[in-house]
Design a protein around this nucleic acid. Structure first.
Lengths: 182, 182
DNA sequence: AAGCCATCTTGTCAATGGCAAGTTAGAGTG
DNA sequence: CACTCTAACTTGCCATTGACAAGATGGCTT
């Protein structure tokens, strides 16, 4: 009704993804409904199916977008290992909806080619970041670094951390990561 | 707790919780359906509501049970800090369904008294485990330790770790934790 | 101008969560 | 033993959802 374009939305695919991010950022992934997204975009309830097939298809697109955003954030973080870790946490906090989908493979098709490509890219950025810093046991160091930033991000998002940690996730993350790589 | 008398079913509350764990261990939390649980237990579709109110009520009971199991696992791990961390990962892998619900507060009522009590108990076991080991900066050390084991467990469960890590999560976790507390 | 076809709509169905009202089995009480 | 009381469970219902099928629309190519 309100949209200027009568029949063709113009950029429905993007509108649906944006709406999905908005909903999930507020109410979590469980609250996501294709019909609700369609209503928000001002289209019929079956319109999303044409772009994504089904719900898993939409979340697959969201996951792929998320891994690309993550790779971008890691690249922008520069060469310092601690900065890279802080950027990982910053991405999780700033793109909460993407992050929560990305690591819940039961919600989407993790073997999707686009997803695999983007995830591989992000993974390599993480591993090379670690390898640049430490000489010994790159595998263990990379795994430890990934674990500590991923764990901190997850705990922060789930609200499990005590208030004593403070209001700034990235500052707290920096302290924690520095504990691993002094 | 409130052990119900055997009636038509016998111990429906427990049967439903067990079925929920079984379903989620196979297909994840998104696949959970109250009606399916009722069918598995051989009762009508409205029977679960009497014991748990609604779906969030069932997951609240599951989360409380999970935090109790976690506290128990940490207590059994003994005094060593690394052993405690390995036990945390072991709990996550062995009680995957519980673990996945516990840290997804949008799925249940995190302010439930039983949940709060059990979570506090488990949290104290974690913190004292760390404090026993390190003298300086107990807050940072505790946060780093929790982050690294939680992150490793989460990444393992999501299937995000490369096969190179090996088939035994607890062995790999021990190596990673030892990297943080040499 | 004509037709193709991606885009979007209307219509329908089974499954789900949740509510309301009724039924039953056994415990408690006299 | 008869009676009541109530927790445990049932049947019935409704709105919502995801998915599918078939039709309508309009931009784009030729």
């Amino acid at each position: 009704m309100s949209q200027s374009r009568a029949y063709h939305h113009g950029d429905l695919r993007r509108a649906l993804l944006d709406a999905a991010v908005e909903v999930m950022a507020e109410s979590g992934p469980a609250a996501l409904s294709l019909r609700d997204l369609a209503r928000r975009a001002g289209v019929s309830h079956a319109a999303p199916a044409h772009h994504f097939g089904d719900k898993a298809g939409l979340l697959t697109a969201l996951a792929a977008q998320g891994f690309e955003l993550l790779a971008e954030a890691l690249r922008d973080a520069g060469d310092d290992l601690v900065d890279t870790g802080v950027a990982y946490v910053g991405f999780a906090v700033r793109h909460r909806a993407h992050f929560e989908v990305m690591f819940r493979p039961d919600l989407y098709r993790a073997d999707d080619p686009e997803v695999v490509a983007a995830r591989t890219r992000a993974g390599e950025l993480l591993r090379t970041g670690v390898a640049r810093r430490t000489g010994r046991g790159p595998d263990v160091d990379a795994l430890a670094a990934w674990s500590i930033v991923h764990g901190f991000a997850t705990l922060w998002l789930s609200g499990a951390l005590p208030p004593r940690v403070g209001p700034d996730p990235e500052a707290a993350a920096r302290t924690v990561i520095s504990r691993l790589f002094p």
